[in-house]
Structures are given as C-alpha cells and as structure tokens.
Amino acid sequence: MSPGDLAALVLTLKLAGIVTALLLLMGTPLAWWLAHTRCRFRPVVEALVALPIVLPPSVLGFYLLVAMGPHGPIGALTQALGLGTLPFTFAGLVLASVFYSLPFVVQPIQQAFAAIPSGLMEAASTLRAGPWDRFRSVALPLAAPGFLTAGILGFAHTLGEFGVVLMVGGNIEGETRVVSVQIYDHVEALEYGAAHGLSLTLLVLSFSILLVLYARRQPWRL
C-alpha cells in the first residue's frame, strides 16, 4: 500500500469517526423527539431525515456544492462567520457526511426509543425520578442496542461514501481524498493492481464491521 493509499485510509477513518460521534450527539435528541412527539409535522421531519437513503449522492452532492459555495445560503453563513467556504475542506466533508448518514443513525435510535414500554417510564416517574434521571437510567440502557446499531451503521455508511465526496471534495490529499475516491482514481488511471489492494482492504473492513453488528443479534455470541 502506497503512502497515498495509507493517507486516504487514515483520513476516511477519521472522517467516519468524527461524523459518527456528531451524529450520535445530534441524532439522539432528534430521535427522542420523533419517537414521542404528536406534532403534525412529524411525518415531514421523518421524510426529510430519510431522504439521503433514496436520493442519488450526485443530487445531494450537487446541492451541497451550490449551497456551501460563495453564493449559497450555507456559504453566506460561513463567510459571515469568517470561516470562508466549506467545499474542498475536511469540515465541508464532515457536514456533507452528517447529512448523508443521518437516517442510518437516527432511525435505529428512534425505533429503540419507541420500543420502550411507556409504563416503565411512568413507573420511574412514580419513584420520583426526574425527566433527565428517567432518560439516563431507564431509556438509555434499554435503547443501548439501538445506539450500537446506529453507531455501526453510521460509521460504515460514511466509510463507503463516494458520490457526495466526489462532488464537494476536490480530491485533495490528506484533506478530502478518501479511500473510495483514491480507488476511483486508481481505476480511472488503469492501475488495477493498486485499486484491488485498497478495495480489498475496504471490503474486509466493512464486512468485519457489519459482522459485529449482525453477530450481536444472534442468540449465541461470537
């Protein structure tokens, strides 16, 4: 594996790690709200969250490129804050990936919260547990498998991100050139050997991550 391949691999793992952490932090309140609200706009929010599952990455990437650019709304905001524009930066990739992997984190957590019997929360309430205490000592432990699924899926999905990165990344080594883009470059340059090496690494890595996820669902544990 060349130094360029290694740099791409490290960058990809860093991106997936940061994005997963951010999504778990931001996705949890959103999932809680979605699981409990009676607001009539809930279906709208749920549909918005699920959009990245069905939208082609080229659509998401194209809109993000325009929106984060100097003439777009996100670009106007970041420029007003003195941050410049986000395309072609690692921060831009993080933002794009947060959108891209959002449903993979929010949905499992939402389902886990929804599956908690309301009686349990009420029982805790009669034992004088406050809302935060109820959330921390009843809801969170019961929803733990949902969080694990969310974390693994969010991480693995970001690992395999390609179209969005290609659209907003600009292919800069150590900054935006992730593994999938590096593989694409190898293939385009007809360096199939290098492409195989890196592809196999990603394949084994992704398979192992998913294996952890599904093995947990078996009655016997690996």
Binding site: L65, V66, M68, G69, P70, H71, T85, P87, F88, L166, M167, G170, N171, I172, Y184, D185, E188
Partner: peptide
C-alpha cells in the same frame, strides 16, 4: 491552492459555481 476535478466537466463545475 489546487482542487481537482475527476474530469474536465467537473473542473468546470467547480469554477462555474464560484467555489474555485
């Protein structure tokens, strides 16, 4: 200061959108 398009079409898109 370089950003790279995977082909000349994408390179155009980077400049036309004002991002480069």
């Amino acid at each position: 200061r370089f950003v790279m398009g995977e082909n000349i079409g994408q390179t155009f898109q980077f400049v036309a959108s004002g991002n480069a």
